[in-house]
Computed example of a mutant assay.
Amino acid sequence: MTVITLGPEGTFSHELALKLGNGPVVLEPTIHSIFAAVAAGEGDGIVPIENSEAGGVGETLDGLTQYSLSITAEMYMPIHHNLASLVPLDKIRVIYAHPQTHEQCSGCIEDWKVPVIHTSSNASSALEARKTPNAGAILSVSAAAIYRLPIIAEHVENNPENTTRFVRISKTPNPTCRAGKCSILIDPDTDRAGLLYDLLGVFARRGINLSRIESRPSKRGMGKYVFFLDYAVSGCTDEALRELEGITTIRKLGCYPKTEVPA
């Protein structure tokens, strides 16, 4: 199966896809284009969905809202960032970084007091730094090697335990999953006091563990949100979903196992 993920060569997504080794890898310039390619039947996608430091990845959450695709696996990858440049730190006048990378490395960036320009990926940061005089880029060790940028500061992330959760997206959902995690999208069609309390109570009354809840603008106006929920698979899951469907509109995003990432 072809795996579609974020390019250019040298992104963390690309590195993960190569480690998993599930088939040929196709690189797309944006997360949105990954979703479009998967929806067109060109393969499965691997996309980042949340980071332990910076939180949810908006482009991925929006893609799950816009496209009728399923999550079929999740993977966790330690993320370590480095500052790379053709010049010493005191000569750097601008740093290129992906917005999530910027947030994950905000402490060092504040200390350096150097302006930051956002890019579409860490690999794009490397490309910009190579062609811009007195520029640096925050990226992975592999990207620094690919684009021949010397690393001048290692492990510049705020938290040494920095981790990104990735998911595999597919046109076809997993068969019935009896272990692991499930995800759903809740799109409330009403706005009333106690709605969120009632939604969460469906799971609480059955002892179902919610591992994540996140809101995202619905794009239908100020104050209108959709909610993403992850929960552990249990014997009461189907019953809980039936009750939930009686309260609001939901879309099942899939039940899936955790895939271990080779070192």
Score class of each variant (00 low, 15 high):
193 A>C: 07
90 D>S: 08
85 S>Q: 05
191 D>P: 04
91 K>M: 05
110 E>R: 04
138 I>F: 03
177 C>I: 15
146 I>K: 15
103 E>F: 08
168 R>H: 07
175 P>Q: 06
197 Y>S: 01
191 D>M: 02
130 R>F: 03
188 P>R: 01
138 I>C: 02
112 W>K: 07
163 T>N: 09
156 V>K: 03
128 E>C: 14
190 T>W: 04
133 P>G: 12
93 R>M: 12
143 A>P: 04
94 V>P: 10
192 R>T: 04
146 I>Y: 15
153 A>R: 10
196 L>V: 13
139 L>P: 07
111 D>Y: 08
80 H>T: 06
89 L>Q: 14
182 C>M: 08
114 V>H: 12
139 L>R: 03
81 H>F: 13
192 R>L: 02
102 H>K: 10
150 P>I: 09
110 E>D: 08
188 P>Q: 05
195 L>V: 01
194 G>H: 09
192 R>Q: 12
84 A>Y: 09
85 S>V: 14
196 L>R: 05
153 A>E: 13
180 G>R: 07
89 L>W: 07
138 I>T: 01
184 I>K: 11
194 G>D: 07
150 P>V: 15
166 F>W: 13
136 G>W: 04
149 L>P: 03
111 D>M: 08
95 I>C: 09
141 V>T: 11
116 V>S: 13
197 Y>N: 01
109 I>E: 05
146 I>A: 12
111 D>T: 10
124 S>L: 12
99 P>W: 10
155 H>N: 14
159 N>C: 09
119 T>D: 05
192 R>Y: 04
104 Q>C: 00
112 W>G: 13
116 V>D: 08
168 R>T: 06
121 S>L: 07
149 L>H: 00
115 P>M: 00
163 T>P: 13
85 S>W: 08
149 L>Y: 03
187 D>L: 01
134 N>Y: 12
150 P>C: 10
110 E>G: 14
94 V>Y: 11
114 V>C: 15
97 A>E: 03
104 Q>Y: 00
149 L>E: 01
182 C>E: 12
142 S>A: 09
121 S>Y: 04
95 I>S: 06
176 T>G: 04
172 T>E: 13
94 V>G: 11
196 L>E: 06
144 A>W: 13
160 P>W: 12
183 S>E: 05
114 V>Y: 06
87 V>L: 06
173 P>A: 15
181 K>M: 10
137 A>M: 14
179 A>V: 09
180 G>S: 03
147 Y>A: 01
133 P>H: 14
195 L>Y: 02
172 T>H: 05
132 T>W: 11
138 I>D: 07
117 I>L: 08
171 K>C: 07
121 S>D: 00
126 A>C: 15
80 H>W: 11
165 R>D: 10
155 H>R: 13
124 S>P: 02
146 I>N: 14
